[in-house]
């Protein structure tokens, strides 16, 4: 009866929880790299530098506009770099997650697979 209990948990609640764990790791990575925030504020002035409204003659306004645009461009560059790094890490997390879920499915079959490989007698050549 315990064996049945084990298999029903492994492929039931256990599998579901493993999936939730993978999803949680992905969400944490997304949060760590602030992906949503970076996309939302991609062109916002970096650290509010030159972000304030300026009143005055046209040259002053133009100068402020240029300053603000530079701040936005710097912000966008920094954010894009982080976004790219984030996307690489997130892809890795997704890949590891998928592998984990696949491995989870075959772990109970591992003793049998090992036995078959042993009986086949093949070993990888290392050199």
């Amino acid at each position: 009866m315990l064996v049945v209990g084990f298999f029903s948990w492994w492929y039931g609640v256990g599998y579901k929880e493993r999936f939730l764990l993978v999803r949680e790791r992905l969400a944490s990575t997304l949060d760590y790299f602030s992906i949503g925030l970076l996309l939302k504020t991609l062109f916002a002035p970096y650290k509010q530098i030159s972000a304030g409204k300026v009143r005055g003659p046209l040259p002053v306004i133009l100068r402020a506009w240029v300053d603000r645009s530079i701040s936005r461009i710097i912000g966008a560059i920094v954010r894009i770099i982080v976004l790219v790094m984030g996307i690489i890490v997130i892809t890795a997390v997704i890949a590891i997650g998928i592998i984990t879920l696949l491995l989870w499915a075959i772990v109970p079959l591992a003793p049998l697979a090992g036995l078959l490989l042993y009986m086949w007698g093949w070993v990888p050549a290392w050199s």
């Binding site: 944490s28 790299f33 650290k47 982080v82």
Partner: peptide
């Protein structure tokens, strides 16, 4: 439980 507190870029849109 792991907390979601905005991540590394959370305050980049806000001033020094």
């Amino acid at each position: 439980k792991p907390r979601r507190t905005g991540g590394i870029a959370r305050d980049w849109s806000f001033g020094y």
